[in-house]
Amino acid sequence: MVLFLVLITFINTLVTAWAYLSLNRQRYLFSERFGFTVTFLASTSCSFVLALNLFLLFPTHLEVVSTFTLFLGIVIGALFGSMVNMQSFIAGVFNGGVGGIMGSMLGAVALDPSLCGLPADLWAEQDMMLFMSLLSLGIQLLSASMLTLAKRL
């Protein structure tokens, strides 16, 4: 299970890096509005997915991981946002931070459902980790395909 999670995290990091490099290569072609939209999409989905994977990978260190994922989301959003101008930079920092917080919240609920008032033995932990990692992979691949489609159009 740990090996599977590490593999999923590696694939998601690779897709994030590919999206950043391929957008960074043609950043002089972007208008302001296209930069804002791309920053909004890419920073939210990438920081959400990476925060969820990191929380599932280190479930015992709750405070350290949630602080680190917030910081990681801000860094990802600043990287994507610094391609165009100041407006997209602000949007990237804010949405990356929100995505990081939401990813660690979803991971916390998945590992401990009594946090939300659901019964504590609602699902087996293996099933939930499998479902959450496949969900994160699906979100990341869907967002990356919509991003490449946006560059073509």
């Binding site: 939209t37 939401m102 609920v109």
Partner: peptide, 22 residues
């Protein structure tokens, strides 16, 4: 581009809302 914005906002709200409701 409005398709992209609506897509990511609907996805985020749809994942978060069952937790808020629970």
């Amino acid at each position: 581009q409005t398709v992209l914005t609506g897509y990511i906002n609907g996805l985020m709200m749809g994942i978060m809302s069952p937790m808020v409701g629970a």
